[in-house]
Design a protein around this nucleic acid. Sequence first.
DNA 1: CAGTGGTCTAGACCACTCT
DNA 2: GAGTGGTCTAGACCACTGG
Lengths: 197, 197
Amino acid sequence: MPIPRYYQAKARLLDLLDGLPGHTPFPPERALSDLIGMSRSTIRKALDELVLEGRLLRGTGRQGTTVAPRRQPLRITLHALLQDQIPRERTTTRTTNGVTTVESVLLHLDEPIGVRRTLLRAPACRLRQSEPWCTTTLATPRVARLLNVRAATPLLAVAWLGHDREGVPRERSSVVLRGDRARLALQVQGSAQFRAG
Amino acid sequence: MPIPRYYQAKARLLDLLDGLPGHTPFPPERALSDLIGMSRSTIRKALDELVLEGRLLRGTGRQGTTVAPRRQPLRITLHALLQDQIPRERTTTRTTNGVTTVESVLLHLDEPIGVRRTLLRAPACRLRQSEPWCTTTLATPRVARLLNVRAATPLLAVAWLGHDREGVPRERSSVVLRGDRARLALQVQGSAQFRAG
DNA sequence: CAGTGGTCTAGACCACTCT
DNA sequence: GAGTGGTCTAGACCACTGG
């Protein structure tokens, strides 16, 4: 298998990108296509990976592509996530077929970093929450728009269930987070001392 | 913003896919293009996401696309990860400039599900490990080969540092996991009872 | 050999944003 | 209005695999 051309393009783009300060405008895709001598599709494939790696930002319209500023990811604890202690905005509530969906956008430094979604089957009572788990997921078009990222951007997902006293599941909650903007702090149970080596 | 056509295609493909047993051959891209009435590029974009989500497998040549066997993701605890209790193979050790790199492939049901990598600066002594954190990352070409996934596949990353008694960092460890094969169980500290609604 | 997925091209239209 | 990224099309060639 030969080296794909978009790999070579990516290397060229990394050279162009290296050392530029954050928010510097990056050449438009059509200009890069002419400069490097590959079709816009191929250039885009290289740019896609650079965006996924957090090196470039893409804006809509005349905003264009810019160099991503280096940001320290927000440290988020599981406790803050479960207790809903992350600053949020644009909370919407919708009820269909007896299931209430609550959705809100999590913020950090006035930038959307995640989406929290809770599905509740009435009534709202004291629920026992299952052990949460963590995995990866891809941004749906809706979530991508809320987070100002490309669709299919990989996200960190934390999810859990809530059961009532009879053990019937009544809550299904999930939080998806931009991995380049947030990192989940994992508290270690018991001893924090291990033998290495 | 209208719903992209590839997202509609993805919904169609999910219908086709739903309920099919693992390893069932899936129609070739050109046939799907005719069937759904969209260009092969658009169909491919939808297929790409299904592959990333672990619903489809793509083989080279005449192997074609097949339905991925539905597997229950392995539940992994942070404790097992830190204590190195996941079955592994192909462990390699390499030392350069006084830094020892230990790399091994984590297994589940004879399938690679992750890569564990530890960078150690000698000597091997009792280390105090920092609070681990969790985020997402993209598969490097090397990791992609080890895990039998495409490059730039999104992965779940857990990382931590190890300091000696003087507070000097001597260990840098990370585990990257296929999100479709493993989920990280998050133990809740203290009360597991919260008010919902 | 025929058919597959992987890559690549040269166009096109759209929604959006800045000037 | 002009230019941007996002999407989409209809082709093409390649490396690879199975019969």
